[in-house]
Nucleic acid binder design. Structure first.
Lengths: 96, 96
DNA sequence: TTATATTTGATAATATTTGACAAGTCAAAA
DNA sequence: TTTTGACTTGTCAAATATTATCAAATATAA
């Protein structure tokens, strides 16, 4: 399954009629990398999220949430007890 | 904060009056490593979970859940939007 | 002190991720 | 049907990150 993050940033880019070739250099990467990120075979680095949000003129928080969810999903998919583990983490986090 | 997983396996080991020196070789590691795992400066490999559950005579599922929760917590702690991301992942997972 | 258990730190060994580039596909225009 | 432009894919070396190993330090109890 395609990642939500990759799908989202591709949509944003296309909506704005930007080419990979235009966006990639702004993130200091080549088009191949950005393509892979959109197709979810590579991860965007966290520190590139903010620049990307600016380039795509969208909310950082939204992109960040999708990005983080992808990381977590990657970790827990195909794992038994995933739901229990997630629930436990939510509880732990709320305590702070 | 000490991880739940590390705390748990230490408790189990101590309850059974086992020394690191006794348990570590059963997992093909040295005591220093196991000590670090209990103190959470190093992660147990997933494939070592089942052997460890047997050694400590405890439920695999319980250990696995704690272990997985620790991995996820590591990823999302100190991240904004962590709760939203977790919620989203739970939803995604339930669909399968 | 001595003996035993655990912890810590340094660094070597491994594993993983990334960057860079070449070659590939695909669709549309000429 | 060739050319062009956009994107995709694979490879591989370099950069990073993680883990293993061992020695030394610390702790605890007798």
């Amino acid at each position: 399954m395609q990642s939500k993050f990759g799908t989202k940033i591709r949509e944003l880019r296309e909506t704005q009629k930007l080419y990979l070739r235009q966006v990639a250099p702004l993130l200091e990467m080549d088009t191949a990398q950005l393509s892979k990120i959109e197709k979810d075979t590579r991860q965007l680095k966290q520190e590139q999220l903010e620049p990307l949000a600016k380039i795509l003129q969208t909310e950082f928080a939204e992109l960040h949430t999708l990005w983080l969810a992808d990381q977590v999903l990657d970790l827990v998919k195909d794992q038994p007890n995933a739901n229990e583990a997630l629930k436990s983490v939510s509880k732990t986090i709320k305590k702070k």
